[in-house]
Design a protein around this nucleic acid. Structure first.
Lengths: 220, 220
DNA sequence: GCAGGTGGTGATCATTTTATGACCGATATT
DNA sequence: AATATCGGTCATAAAATGATCACCACCTGC
């Protein structure tokens, strides 16, 4: 998964921004249309999206809500449109910020840094007696160390990161596995099952890793 | 713990903002100095801080870093100082946003709402004692948790979203089921029926989910 | 008050979704 | 090379849902 997905049709600006952010150590993908943005995001995901509103195909707002359907990845809208209505619209759609063009690239960087720090630089994730140490990828359950396989760890981390929130199976799958084949959703079930065993959770009476019927799973 | 702590020495502005946010359902405390802000925060905490930079005593930046020492409560800096340096400074200190004065109060609200939603998963729909938490797809009726099946949840959410408004059966059906077959409208009746049972609503004397004869249903 | 249409409701049952044990190839470990 | 672990697929079981049916109740216009 790349750190930052840039959706910007101004090629020059896009390249500039991409290079700049790369020089700051982020991995960056850039696309020039809404269509491609959604495509790329659904396939590979991203940790943060910088989204222009005026795009050749879809409207940026449409992209925003499309992305928001599954993920709550931070979205920074960047636009030359300065109307109040546009801003409210963007924020209502779940954008984390609405930055007017032209913007100062250092300010943008500061905001991006802030979001990454708040959002991703946690070294520990914990909830309901489960603690994940993201640095050394160890896990503790009710104070006891537990061995988690890589996929299990990632899956649990994702769930705990969004604790309390019901996550769609498709979303979970695309986050961990990246693409979406059909029958392979089954795989997710298997992994959930294995996780539950290690968590000591009985699905019929799960205390932590709950099934949300018709939707997916949530960690509480 | 109050939802929002306002740190602002302009009394008029402070009162305006306080009233406005209260009318939006937040609990609000307001202070006029950095000293008091830190004091109050350490004593009672807050879920979000709106922080002015120009304060009579301490500098707002100092307040910001002071608050950050212990808590990672979201901080929105609001200031008449528009220098790039100030903004960078604020963001580096861990502020979630730096909003220039004069600001539009609706934009501020939108940002606050966004933070509450992202951070505290407060994205609720509620009416007449029924509360749906869209994030984790749980429901409460008169304070009691209730299990709703996927279709039931979606249907109720749609009705509450448009509360007070009579929705045509065909509309409801196409929203939830997507297509529109004829005889299957009956299905909607069945689901409404189940919802009413869970809501404790007797159709003859419904208090919440009303039948609008010849049209459809409405939630009041 | 009657007829026809509209809405309500319990029961049934096929379908969809989820759970889980077994298996197997790939990869890492000793 | 032997062994263990991981991670994926398959087959099958179990569970929940939700569509439909059948029938009843109610409304409304005549």
């Amino acid at each position: 998964m790349t750190d930052i997905l840039i959706v910007e049709d101004d090629k020059e600006l896009s390249v500039l921004l991409t290079d700049f952010l790369r020089s700051e150590g982020y991995t960056v993908s850039a696309v020039e249309s809404g269509e491609r943005a959604v495509q790329l995001f659904e396939r590979y995901g991203a940790r943060l999206v910088v989204l222009d509103i005026n795009l050749p195909d879809m409207n940026g707002f449409a992209v925003c809500s499309k992305l928001r359907e599954n993920a709550d990845t931070p979205i920074l809208i960047v636009s030359a449109r300065t109307d109040k209505e546009d801003k409210l619209n963007g924020l209502d759609l779940g954008a984390d910020d609405y930055i007017e063009k032209p913007y100062d690239i250092d300010i943008l960087l500061a905001k991006i840094k802030g979001i990454f720090k708040r959002r991703y630089q946690r070294s520990m994730l914990s909830a309901s007696g489960v603690t994940l140490n993201l640095a050394d990828r160890t896990a503790e359950i009710d104070g006891r160390p537990v061995e988690l396989a890589a996929k299990e760890f990632d899956l649990l981390a994702l769930l705990i990161e969004n604790q309390g929130k019901a996550l769609k199976k498709e979303y979970l799958f695309s986050c961990i596995w990246g693409s979406d084949s059909d029958s392979e959703l089954q795989t997710l079930h298997v992994h959930i099952n294995r996780l539950r065993q290690k968590l000591g959770d009985d699905p019929k009476n799960a205390r932590r890793l709950l099934t949300v019927w018709g939707v997916g799973y949530k960690f509480v």
